[in-house]
Design a protein around this nucleic acid. Structure first.
Length: 679
DNA sequence: GCAAGGTC
């Protein structure tokens, strides 16, 4: 790279401000033949478009953010400052800041070419406000970083989109006001009671996520499993054994199931009354977006979503894969697929697969794509650069991305299925299914999907396979919900909470604060997490649900459309939040909050404790969690006993030993058996 | 020290 002396900055120029270096590169090359040089390690591009000198510079995300010099509560004084000045982790921004502060002020026109969303509008606006002149500013509006679209956006420059920037600034300030004030309120209440400091937090995204985690935790631990007897028939025909299951009917008690089993066994045979064969074509999955990559890395390798994201970012910075923070399931049409595959094929471990793929497709490379799109970026794909010295986990994630990319071009997999409908001696219907993967298709490239293969003998209508055995199995219902990093990430995505870049990070924050903890592959809520949740639902119920985000979205839309002013929206929030905080400070509530927190983490002795878990209670012998479990158990125990055909005591014993039963339910069942708690 | 949003 040539040094800064080689950067011959023209005397007169317009400046284009990109959101990140990669985008600056794309923009510069789309508009002409740029001269690339660097100041420090920050690349800049100089080019001439129709006689006008253009300098393309870039930020690296947000350069400025809300901050304050004020301690204490409530805090409504917001100062926007360069992030690197108050956030250690943003130090890498400093060289970008230096370049912008040197090159932007001397420009004639200032063109905001950051991503076209309210964050991008804010990033560019703040830079122009700091170093340029808003009255000589323009906006480039594009929805993808393709050369054609960038050229068109440059030909049709828009006025600076001040309203979008105002919406982005309001977003940041509202999040900051809610987050900082309520977090400080929590910490202050704790400090007031214990005299100790403890890092606590609350926010528009993290708190509803904590609330959802607790909803799941309560559901799982208060779950009373219901037994469901199921019948399985093993049949024999022409020397081949196979399995049949009830079709369109079921039994609810073990007694009924045993009666059916006896009848069927005594009937000796079943009769095949119809057969159907089908062949199902399964298309390959689309290339990855960030969430799908996180899901698959968790499913296949047990990687946490955050770890996967970190690794993907490393791979991106090493130029091995495209931009990972994307929602898109579409590949860029301008990408030379053949070239990428050829260079992947130069890695020994993929040579054979790439050869097969080119053969199977006859070189016609048309990828399967998904519906999801992203205005700023395509799906994640390998660039074809040769990796060097990847450690195990980087290798693993890279391999997933490469295979998923190859699979997108591969032919569908073909499954052949056979379904036989049989009748037993009492004309009840049963079904036996056979399935086999007739053609592997894309599964050869992305072998992480398993289909349950099973064989049937050759059957014809009227055949009478022999009933070899019939078994009654009792299966118990599960809670139907999981609590893990991945399940929370999926929930956040489904509820449009957070962004692709922040979801995994915010989940980590809940773990870092000690609100959630890992127990093997699943997660648990800590006493601290539960106490924070209880305190916040009293003090700031707005923060507990996704509706605050929905309110934000409405307000920000109005600001974007010019129907509301940023000042008004923000000052309304300031008033609301500071009144909320003052109300707590001026009442005894701050002590009540702190005491609640301190009691739950064992810093202060509670008045009374739960007889089972020792959690603080308000005078009762069981905590509200065990009381909820007890109430669920009382509602269901008779039905459990009826289905099993056993006494209530025996049903309690079965539940207390059942792994699908919630922990608190098992606790309560055990207590009832011991006679200390009346059923 | 606290949020959530960008990104090296």
């Amino acid at each position: 790279m040539r040094s800064s002396r080689d950067c011959n900055i023209p005397q007169y120029y317009d400046v284009i401000i990109a959101e990140k270096p990669k985008a600056a590169d794309k923009i510069a090359h789309a508009l002409g033949s740029p001269f690339r040089c660097a100041i420090g390690r920050v690349p800049i591009y100089i080019l001439n478009v129709n006689g006008t000198n253009i300098v393309v510079v870039s930020s690296a995300g947000h350069m400025f953010g809300p901050s304050t010099g004020v301690e204490g509560l409530p805090v409504t004084m917001i100062r926007w400052e360069p992030l690197w000045r108050f956030d250690r982790r943003s130090k890498y921004l400093r060289p970008y800041y230096e370049v912008l502060s040197r090159l932007v002020p001397k420009a004639r026109y200032f063109i905001n070419a950051c991503d076209y969303d309210i964050e991008g509008s804010t990033i560019g606006y703040k830079i122009i406000e700091a170093f340029g002149d808003k009255s000589r500013a323009k906006r480039m509006k594009f929805s993808s970083l393709t050369a054609a679209e960038l050229r068109q956006a440059f030909r049709r420059l828009q006025p600076l989109d001040v309203n979008n920037a105002m919406a982005g600034i309001a977003r940041a300030e509202l999040d900051w006001l809610w987050g900082i004030n309520i977090s400080r309120l929590l910490m202050k209440s704790y400090r007031e009671v214990t005299g100790e400091r403890l890092s606590l937090s609350a926010g528009r995204v993290q708190t509803p996520t904590l609330a959802e985690a607790i909803r799941r935790w309560v559901k799982i631990n208060t779950h009373v499993p219901i037994p469901q007897p199921s019948l399985t028939a093993r049949l024999l025909h022409k020397g081949v054994e196979f399995t049949a299951y009830p079709l369109g009917w079921s039994v609810s008690t073990v007694k009924e199931a045993r009666e059916v089993a006896k009848e069927v066994k005594e009937g000796m045979y079943m009769e095949v009354i119809s057969l159907s064969r089908a062949s199902e074509s399964v298309r390959p999955p689309p290339p990855f977006n960030l969430t799908d990559l996180q899901k698959e890395a968790a499913r296949i390798y047990g990687l946490s979503p955050y770890k996967t994201q970190e690794v993907a970012e490393d791979l991106y910075l090493a130029a091995l894969i495209s931009y990972p923070r994307t929602n898109s399931e579409k590949l860029p049409p301008t990408l030379n697929y053949r070239e990428v595959l050829d260079s992947i094929g130069r890695q020994p471990k993929y040579r054979g697969l790439v050869g097969d793929l080119l053969r199977e497709t006859g070189g016609v490379l048309r990828p399967r794509e998904g519906p999801a799109d992203d205005p700023a970026h395509p799906a994640i794909y390998p660039t074809g650069e040769q990796p060097t010295r990847l450690d195990r986990v980087h290798e693993t994630v890279y391999d997933l991305i490469v295979r998923r990319f190859m699979a997108a071009f591969a032919p569908p997999a073909t499954l052949s299925t056979v379904s036989a409908v049989l009748t037993d001696v009492k004309a009840r219907r049963w079904e036996a299914r056979g399935l086999n993967v007739a053609e592997r298709g894309w599964l050869k490239y992305y072998p992480f999907h398993k289909f349950d293969e099973s064989q049937l003998p050759t059957l014809n209508r009227g055949d009478r396979p022999l009933v070899r055995s019939i078994t009654v199995k009792v299966s118990w219902s599960g809670p139907g919900l999981r609590l893990s990093r991945l399940s929370l990430l999926e929930w956040m995505e489904a509820n449009d909470l957070g962004t692709k870049g922040t979801r995994a990070r915010i989940i980590e924050t809940l773990y870092k604060r000690g609100f959630i903890t890992s127990r093997g592959s699943h997660a648990e809520i800590t006493n601290l997490g539960y106490a924070v949740y209880k305190v916040l639902s009293e003090v700031a119920p707005e923060l507990m649900s996704v509706s605050l985000t929905r309110d934000f979205e409405r307000m920000l839309d109005e600001i974007s459309m010019g129907k509301a002013s940023r000042e008004e929206v923000v000052s309304r929030a300031k008033k609301y939040i500071s009144e909320l905080v003052e109300r707590q400070l001026n009442s005894n509530n701050i002590k009540v909050m702190g005491t609640y927190l301190a009691e739950f983490i064992g810093k202060v002795r509670p008045r009374s404790r739960c007889a089972i878990c020792g959690r603080p209670t308000d005078g009762q012998s069981l905590c509200e969690l065990h009381l909820a479990a007890k109430s669920n158990l009382e509602k269901s125990i008779d039905e459990v006993a009826r289905r099993l055909g056993v006494s209530k005591e025996e049903a309690l014993r079965r539940i207390s030993n059942n792994r699908l039963a919630g922990k608190w339910v098992r606790d309560v069942a055990a207590l009832m058996i011991s006679g200390k708690e009346r059923p």
